[in-house]
Amino acid sequence: MAAALPNDRLGFLLSFRGELTGARIRAALGVAGLHPRSVMTLMQLAPGAMSQRDLAAAMEVDPSQLVAMLNELEDQGLAERRRDPADRRRHIVEITETGAAALERVDTAVNAAERELFGGLTDAEQVLLRSLLDRVVVDPADHDCGAG
Rank of each mutant, 00 (worst) to 15 (best):
M1K: 10
A4P: 10
P6T: 11
N7R: 11
L10D: 04
L13T: 12
L13E: 11
S15F: 07
T21G: 10
I25V: 15
I25G: 11
A27W: 00
G30T: 07
V31D: 05
A32T: 11
R37M: 11
S38L: 03
V39S: 02
V39I: 12
T41D: 00
T41Y: 02
M43D: 08
P47S: 09
G48W: 02
Q52P: 01
R53I: 06
A58V: 01
M59V: 00
V61T: 14
V61I: 13
D62V: 02
S64I: 13
M69Q: 15
M69E: 14
L73A: 10
E80S: 05
E80R: 15
E80H: 10
D84E: 14
P85G: 06
A86H: 14
R90C: 06
H91L: 13
E94G: 12
E94T: 12
I95R: 07
A100P: 05
A101G: 08
V106I: 09
V106H: 05
A112T: 15
L117D: 01
G120A: 09
T122D: 02
D123L: 04
A124F: 05
E125P: 05
S131R: 15
L132W: 07
R135H: 04
R135A: 07
V138R: 14
D139R: 14
C145T: 09
A147I: 13
A147Y: 09
A147D: 13
